[in-house]
Amino acid sequence: MRLQQSLPVERVGGGRQRLDARDILARYGTFLALIALIVVAALLSPRFLTPVNLMNVLRQTAIVGVLGIGMTYVILTAGIDLSVGATLALSAVLLAGTLETTGNIVLAMLVAVLAGMAVGLGNGLGVTLGRVQPFVMTLGMLGIARSIAFLYTGGEPIPVLDRTFLTLGIGYLWRIPIPSLIFIAILVVAALALRYTPFGRAVYAIGSNEEAARLSGIAVGRVKTLVYIISGATAGIGAIMYCSQFASAPPIAGEGYELDAIAAVVVGGTSLFGGQGGVIGTFFGALIIGILSNILNLMGVSPFAQPLAKGALIILAVLIVGRGRRG
């Protein structure tokens, strides 16, 4: 009986042989691309594989990587968050300002994260209650957050001088840059939450079919609001990393980071239509973009040409993943 019923499946299975190569490409494509890139980079520049350089890559990847994790949650629900770069700037200047006036590191960091979450709450409510398109809502929020950062500082950067705080950005723990450790820790939590909590399931369900999720009793509005709050929180954490690395909080901080974060998500194989992908892919995506910048720098490629290489890479990644998914 059971055998008979599995017959039609076998037929489907026959067709799958051909699909398997694509499947592998879609599932592990980002990882394979990362390996390939590392090999090429090592061949191109002897300095690439030195510990110092690798640690630099890791440190430089951390901020965009953390933003990318929040962005992955948003994109999995078929949304987008264009405001993360500006939110990072707002959180950064508030952090620096708080540190300057109170000298309290914990309070300053708390302010940064809470400010980010507040911006995310605004985005979330706009998207759910206001029914504003995520693209439009977060584009508006980009302008608002950036502008508040400028108004708060009067346009000048706020210096960050607290030595203890700066250790967070430039220090090492177990010979690994602290920002990278923070990135990995957040990654692990985010990956577990996505995979092993009802919330994670709801995120995928909404991105896959919002109406079906609603009819299955998922609190769609609440979950969507929450992913924007998470994205705002990662922007706040990104601000902590930024201030402690650059010892300064300029209102122009994080300009264009939203695009790097989106690039990391997309290169990492998450579908902009939602419902497919995950934060592990984003981790690899962020590394790919970081390594690419690094090798271009090592090779002395003109900064004018670097965005070209990055842009081509993103399109290539989507072409490959797109083939695997929907071809």
Partner: peptide, 9 residues
């Protein structure tokens, strides 16, 4: 398809 399933999950 439109109201019931998460087709790609």
């Amino acid at each position: 398809k439109t109201q019931g399933l998460l087709l790609d999950r």
